[in-house]
């Protein structure tokens, strides 16, 4: 390294590493949320860098709704084996018992039970005092104003009116009993930063991000991939193969595919720069109601 000035990606990388180390040094029971998506992949990569040559000193938690793409689960298990991190998975057993699914119960109720409530269960069960997430401030309006170290009360709720001022890089990590912290090391990254970093570092990501022929149906203008035979088909619907990829990954019935031939990272980045629609558009959760993300966050969703 000959230059004295760090490029913006190196600056972002170093800041995220500093945040991850601060979590490890300041909290008794931290955990890192692992959603298996591209942001989680970057977070995992940064955590490996932050603690090298030590292993990541906290577990990774995956909240499994049971409706994730099969390729995501396979990728998750491969990463855990390759990098040797401690993987915890949690599924809301009550939801499974009641057969809660996105088709019969609607995306809002399904998300409440299988994601938000499940996350709360997992965090309570582990008595985690800090949960690291991959959210970015450029993603959504309510995130633009959230702290990097974001305080949660004993009910895991966020109080946007009462955030702690966050100056320099001096983070107030102190908690009262029962309270916890959500920590967002990728706060200052943009979607383009994520992709260029994945490209320049050669970070593995789930193949679903790359275009391939996949079985889909078109429903209410959204392309849904038929990932397994649990998906009830409406009359007149027949899955057909199309060249598609995903811009974000979640539960397959709630994640819209986009028609694309981008099969490499440069092509993805080029397509993203040209497409000019917002990233969360492919997520059906956000459009349920106006201001929905803020509401979910106050209830404890990531």
């Amino acid at each position: 390294m000959t230059q004295d000035h760090l490029t913006h990606l190196r600056t972002l990388e170093a800041e995220s590493i500093e945040i991850l180390r601060e979590v490890a040094a300041s909290f008794e029971r931290p955990v890192m949320m692992y959603s298996i998506g591209k942001d989680s992949s970057v977070l995992l990569h940064l955590a490996r860098k932050a603690f090298y040559p030590s292993k990541i000193p906290f577990p990774l938690l995956h909240v499994n709704t049971t409706w994730k793409f099969r390729e995501m689960i396979a990728f998750r298990d491969r990463m855990a084996e390759e990098y040797g991190f401690d993987l915890i998975t949690h599924t809301n057993a009550d939801g499974v018992r009641d057969n809660i699914n996105p088709f019969d119960h609607g995306s809002s109720r399904y998300t409440d039970i299988m994601k938000t409530a499940a996350l709360r269960q997992a965090l309570n069960a582990g008595q985690y005092d800090a949960a690291i997430g991959g959210a970015r401030r450029d993603e959504e309006k309510s995130r633009a104003k959230e702290r990097i170290f974001s305080h949660r009360n004993a009910q895991h709720a966020w109080d946007p009116k009462n955030q702690r001022p966050e100056l320099w890089r001096v983070f107030n990590t102190r908690l009262n009993p029962g309270e916890s912290m959500r920590v967002f090391p990728l706060s200052n990254w943009t979607e383009l930063d994520i992709w260029t970093y994945i490209y320049s570092e050669g970070i593995p990501i789930v193949p679903l991000y790359f275009a391939a022929r996949r079985p889909v149906v078109e429903r209410l203008g959204t392309l849904i991939m038929v990932d397994d035979d649990r998906m009830p088909l409406l009359t007149g619907e027949t899955p057909h193969d199309e060249l598609v990829r995903f811009r974000t990954l979640g539960c397959y019935p709630l994640t819209g595919a986009m028609r694309s031939s981008a099969a490499s990272l440069p092509e993805i980045i080029m397509e993203m720069q040209a497409s000019r629609t917002s990233e969360r558009e492919g997520r059906l959760i956000d459009s349920d109601q106006v201001g929905s993300m803020e509401k979910k966050k106050q209830e404890g969703y990531f």
Binding site: R137, D138, A144, K145, P160, K161, Q163, P165, S187, N188, T190
Partner: peptide, 10 residues
């Protein structure tokens, strides 16, 4: 009634 003390834009 939400006080947004700092919002970040990119």
């Amino acid at each position: 009634g939400i006080t947004i003390d700092v919002a970040y834009r990119f």
